[in-house]
Design a protein around this nucleic acid. Sequence first.
RNA 1: GCGCCCGUAGCUCAGUGGAUUAGAGUACCGCCCUCCGAAGGCGGUGGUCACAGGUUCGAGUCCUGUCGGGCGCGCCA
Length: 586
Amino acid sequence: MKNQVVKLLSQALEQLAADDVVPREGVPAPVVERARETRHGDYACNIAMVLAKIARARPRELAEKLVAALPQNQLVEKVEVAGPGFINFYLRRDAYHQLVPQAIEQGYEFGRSGIGQGRRIQVEFVSANPTGPLHVGHGRGAAYGAVVADLLEAVGFSVHREYYVNDAGRQMDILAASVWLRYLELCDQEIVFPSNGYKGDYIWDIAATLHREHGEAYLHPAAELFQDIPVDEPAGGDKERHIDALIARSKLLLGDNRYRYVFELALNVILDDIRDDLELFGVNYEEWYSERSLTESGAVNKAIERLRNLDHVYQKSGALWFRSTAFGDEKDRVVVRENGQHTYFAADIAYHMDKLERGFERVIDVWGADHHGYVPRVKAALQAMGDDPTRLDVLLVQFANLYRGGEKVQMSTRSGSFVTLRELRKEVGRDAARFFYVMRKCEQHLDFDLDLAKSSSSDNPVYYVQYAHARICSVLRQASEKGIGMEPSAGVENLDRLTEEHEQALFTALSRYGELVESSAINKEPHQLCQYLRELANDFHTYYNAHQFLVEDENLRDARIKLVLAVKQVLRNGLNLLGVSAPESM
RNA sequence: GCGCCCGUAGCUCAGUGGAUUAGAGUACCGCCCUCCGAAGGCGGUGGUCACAGGUUCGAGUCCUGUCGGGCGCGCCA
C-alpha cells in the first residue's frame, strides 16, 4: 500500500516537472511514512517541504499543487495538506479489507516480496574456529546471521549461507597437540599440560576416543616429547614458544600420517558437534567452506601473487607486507611471515577474493565486534585487487551478557567457565534463545535475562507473541467445538462490519507487515520484526479482551474469525522468519 | 594515545531517507475473572533524549567538541 502511495506521488511530481513548477533534475524520490497518529491519516509525506527550497516555493502551496496533480486511485479516500506542508493520505477502509483474504490465501507467502529480484547475496556467519564447542557469544552471531539471511530471502534475494571453517593454522595445531597430550595422559604418561593448550573436557573425550580405538598405537614416552623443549610460562618461560615447540615435536614423533590422523579426528569431532549444535538451533548452511582448501588449491598464493604484480606488497625484516595504508588502513599488514607461513589475513584475502569471483553481487560478513579492527584491512585488500569494497558489508555483533537472578553470569574462555550455546538452548529453549538474541540491534550490547527467557508470562516477549498465536488457535478450536463453520467465507464480505477501534488497529498492523519485513531485511535489523510482533500480539490480546469473537451474529462472527485467522498467519510468518515456533497450544 | 560502537523514563529498550504533541515493556500505584485460555486486560505516576556548540524553516535523529561505558590496536586466529 505504501508503495502505491509513493507511486502516486511520483506521478504527481512528474506532472509538476512537466509544468515547470519543480525542476526536472535533482528532485529526490518522495519519502512516505506511516502517520504516527490516526488523525493524520494513514500515510504522510514531507516532500513539499523538502522541495520548497529548490522549487523556490512555499511548502504549503507546493503541497496543494502536488495534491491537485495526484492521479485518481481507488485506494485513497482523501488527501489533505497539514501543518507546515505535510501531505496526509487517508486510505479507504476496503483497501485494508483486502489484506485479510490475502493473508489467509497466501499463507506462508504473505509479506514476502520480490524486491531482491533474485540477486545473489552471500551471508557468512558464525565461522567459529573448530577448536571447541560454540559458546553463547557465537549464539548471537548464529541467530543474527540466520535471521538476516532468511529476511533477505523473504524479500527475494538468492541467499547463500556459508560457514568459513578455519581448519588450518596454528590454532588447529594447538588443538591436535592438546588432544595428543591428553591421550598420553590416558596412557599413564606424566604430562605437565601446556598453559596455552585447550583444557576443556571435550579434549579428554576426543583423546579417549583415540585411546579406545587405537590403544597405545600413538604412545610415545613423555620424556621424549618434553626433551629440550623451552619451558612454559608458569616456569618462567614463554608459553607461545613452549607450545610451538611441543607442536613441532609432536609432528616429529608421530610422523605425518599419525599426526594428520589426530588432527583430523579432533577437527571432525568438533566440527560435527558444531554442525549438530547449529542444526538444533535452526541454523543451516548452503556451504561449509574450508580454509585449508584455499591453501591447497593455491588460491592463497594466487592472491599474494596478484598483490605482488600490482606492486602492493614489499619485503621487510624477513616478512612480506601488504601496503594496506595505501587504502586507508592504519598500518601495513604482514601476509607472509618470516617463517614462510602465510598469515590468517592472507587466507582471508584469498577467501574474500573468491567470494566476489563466485559472482555474489553482495557479500555480508557477520563478525564479533571484537574483530572490528579487521574491517579496514579486508576492504583495503579488495580495493587493492581492483574490486569494489562496498560490495562487502561487515556486520559487527556486540557481545551478549547473561543475567541470572539479576546477576551477571561470569564467563571466561581461559578458565573454561563459559556457557556453551548447547547449555543455553537446554536451559531456555531454542525459541527463547533465538528471539532474545535478535531482539536488540546488533551493535547494541545485549543483556540476556535467562530468568525472563524461561518465564511463562507476558513479561517474556517470546511467550507473549507465541501466546497470541496459541490463543487464536484456542478460539478456533472453541469455534469448531461449538459447531461453528471453520471455513470462513472467502473474500472481503462482512469485513465492513469490523468497525471497532481494536479491529482498525489490527488492520493497520496487518498492512504494516510487508513493509516491516522489507525494512528489517534491507537494514539487516531483525529487531524491527521482534518489535512488530510484540505490537501485533498486543493489539490482538487487547482486542481479545475487549470483544467476543464467537458471537451470535453470523456475519460479524465470520468477519472476526477471518480477521483473527489473518493475524494468526502473520504471527506464524513473522515467528518463522525469526526461527521461532508458533505453537497451537502452550 | 589512536580507531570503531554505544549513551533516550528507576531498569531493559523502540524511535524507519529529518518533521505535526518523544513511545513500549518492566518497576511502582489503582482497577477488571458468572465472559472464546487472568499464562491476561484497562488506567495512572515517571523524560532538560549524557553535555556544549553548529547546520536548518525544523534536530533524539545530521556535523564538531567534551564527558561516561564497551571493544580493538600481533609476523594470533
